[in-house]
Design a protein around this nucleic acid. Sequence first.
DNA 1: CTAATTATGGAAGATTCTTTCATGTCGGCA
DNA 2: TGCCGACATGAAAGAATCTTCCATAATTAG
Lengths: 154, 154
Amino acid sequence: MSAGLDRIDLKMLRLLQKNGRLTNAELASLADVSPATCHRRTQRLFDDGYIKTVRAMVQPQMVDRAALVMVGVVLDRSTPESFAQFEQAVSKLSFILDCNLVAGDFDYFLKIRVRDMADFNRIHGSQLIALPGVRQTRTFFVMKEVVDNAPLDF
Amino acid sequence: MSAGLDRIDLKMLRLLQKNGRLTNAELASLADVSPATCHRRTQRLFDDGYIKTVRAMVQPQMVDRAALVMVGVVLDRSTPESFAQFEQAVSKLSFILDCNLVAGDFDYFLKIRVRDMADFNRIHGSQLIALPGVRQTRTFFVMKEVVDNAPLDF
DNA sequence: CTAATTATGGAAGATTCTTTCATGTCGGCA
DNA sequence: TGCCGACATGAAAGAATCTTCCATAATTAG
């Protein structure tokens, strides 16, 4: 698997992914190492970039972002400049959770969270179709979230 | 906005979403409350379900999951039983990060992380098309991740 | 086999957590 | 207005945890 990670590192990564609030003492106990070693190893996992951040997963419904929408986007032209312009504009829209350049019938796929359908319609009309170089969008309203942002399995 | 959350709660939620490793003392200082109050409020945010979990965000490349794929799925029949069977099977596949029932040309959208394209092809042939009730799948390989799992804006 | 490098756990001072308690704030009600 | 109850707040202090130092053990290179 990944160079530089032994069995203990992997165990710690999995534990921290499941529960980022484990204290160093708890993690040490679960990973069968001393608190001192655990502390050093955890620091290394952060310093070397194995863990990007630790994030509290806020329940969307609780902060009025219950509606999830997937949007396929086709651009006018498939030039690097067109792509770059689109991507730069997308990065400034905070309601866009995912934006991926894909191979297939679309150029980009967006994952968007908003308050409700009315909110999405407003945003679609005013901000999405106004993104640079957009020829066409196809909207897929999410009716049921079966799996949402599952932890990485490794 | 959300009932039961004042300005301080929202600030704490945003801070914890950005950095789930903030100590209580740090969070208290950033939110301009005493550590005692901060501690009580944080506990309430967890107990009342505003924060689902805290998760270390593991860099996929570092654990050999560099390939991202979006898959649109169409089922044979649109019956509740068919949907339920499909969803139950999907929930057991740990490489599926997102699974959403959508309105539009597909029944479901999947977001999948694997090692590489070869790995996906193997999984597609052996596990995806074998899911119960699948009539057709359409695969969109992600060529560039522009925005990946951005924090909620609220 | 030896030496150098690296990793490990115990120990201890510094920091932080967590609870208690007295005080302060707000809204309802006579 | 004045009183009361419910709730929130910050200071304080014992308990727990963090973080670093150090001597030792394990691993690797030559």
